[in-house]
Write a protein that binds this DNA or RNA. Structure first.
Lengths: 232, 232
DNA sequence: CAATGTGAACGGGTTCACAGCC
DNA sequence: GGCTGTGAACCCGTTCACATTG
């Protein structure tokens, strides 16, 4: 049976980590991974790995482990990684340009096929091989390239406008780097990453440790975190 | 009493959002915000705002709300925002350069004062006003500028090495953009942001919706998310 | 009367621990 | 014997609802 029950959001968020961990195993070669190994590779614990994978199906062999190649295939299938989702980057400032160039995106099935900017000097040219369009062209660009994902890397003032235009154009998944709250209709999936906020969280711990033990930051938190967000 | 009990991590992660929301109110002016308003500004719900603020202290007035200016002061104090934490960016590729330039960092008290790169052509020069040093200079740069936070924006293969060097140099807070699991000693606070992973989570929903209702993505998830990570 | 502050109820996610199976 | 798969226990965070107070 390929229809799977509801997979908890927390588990879904870890599937890409497992997939990333499986990069350690060559494609097409039979190899065995235990939940313990995969846990180390993904930066979580073994119990979580087993629970998470159990939501997808029964892919392991008791007493043995999981076949790495097969597991990669199944997780990929669950995540829909077989598909390629073209993306558009709105705002070609420092961050936008870096994101548009980010090789990790295309490697993972998210090629940046177009960019949007309001600057007349940028519109009409290609920046690092990516064609830049005016905001008014968004709808046609989205249609033409069948874009389903948009990244917002505009200045904060322009972010809500960009989100609105993306939604109007039919984009249903948005990742925003703007440091403001964006409003989108139901049915649109928005993930917000605020880099300064992340640093402030680090700052809180620094600050607290400093208060706790002079200038010595010794007794810290022991585990590492993985940032990203949850659904907005 | 200024000593506060343990503040849940989840609440700490929202404090920067409240601070950001309070930007809507001018500094030094007396104005009132209700938990409801602040919730809207921060993209959360009112109950959360009240619970979170109650961990810090009793700053509101029943029947009235919170004084925006005073609240900003108190949250800033809790987060240690009064301090300025100089940061060093490791890896001046696309992403590193964009981050080093990111105005949001210095605006929030995290000025990028130095960068590290292995490329001899970059070492010794200033990129966008930021001096670039060789990895071997890290320790002295950290000491000189009293750097407490490091950002890793190197290629994945170099990330663990960068982390090790940062730790050796005495940096206790690290934000990594490398798509691999990094190992750091206890006491070092590591937050990992993997942009491709974030997109894959969006991709999962796209994929699932597409399976559910043909090409129509109608009945989606209603709420927005805020990405970042939790502790690694 | 309006909005905070907070115990108590609730729910999701994590961890435990062991039964099941190779 | 070893490792998966999973119910049950546990824990943390969210939400509820209301007593409290300016």
């Amino acid at each position: 049976m390929s229809s799977i029950g509801r997979i908890p959001e927390a588990s879904v968020a870890r599937l890409p980590l497992y997939l990333r961990g499986l990069d350690a195993f060559p494609v097409g070669v039979t190899a065995t991974v235990s939940s313990e190994e995969l846990a180390t590779l993904a930066g979580v614990n073994a119990a979580k790995v087993r629970k998470d994978l159990s939501y997808l199906g029964t892919y392991g062999t008791r007493g043995v482990g999981y076949d790495a190649d097969f597991l990669r295939f199944e997780i990929s299938r669950a995540l829909g990684v077989a598909n390629t989702w073209p993306i558009v980057v709105c705002g070609m400032g420092n961050l936008g340009r870096a994101l548009a160039n980010h090789s990790g995106f295309s490697e993972r099935g998210f090629p940046v096929v177009a960019a949007i900017d309001t600057d007349p000097d940028k519109v009409g040219v290609e920046i690092d091989g990516i064609p830049v369009y005016a905001p008014s062209a968004l709808a046609s660009v989205v249609t033409e390239h069948e874009i389903a994902v948009g990244i917002i890397a505009t200045p904060p003032e322009a972010a809500q406008g960009a989100a609105d235009r993306l939604v109007d154009a039919g984009v249903v998944s948005i990742m925003s780097f703007a440091p403001i709250v964006l409003t989108v209709p139901n049915g649109v999936d928005l993930r917000a990453v605020d880099l300064a906020t992340e640093l402030q969280i680090l700052g809180f711990h620094l600050h607290r440790d400093r208060l706790a033990n002079g200038a010595h930051a010794t007794a810290g938190r022991e585990q590492n975190l993985s940032v990203g967000q949850g659904p907005v």
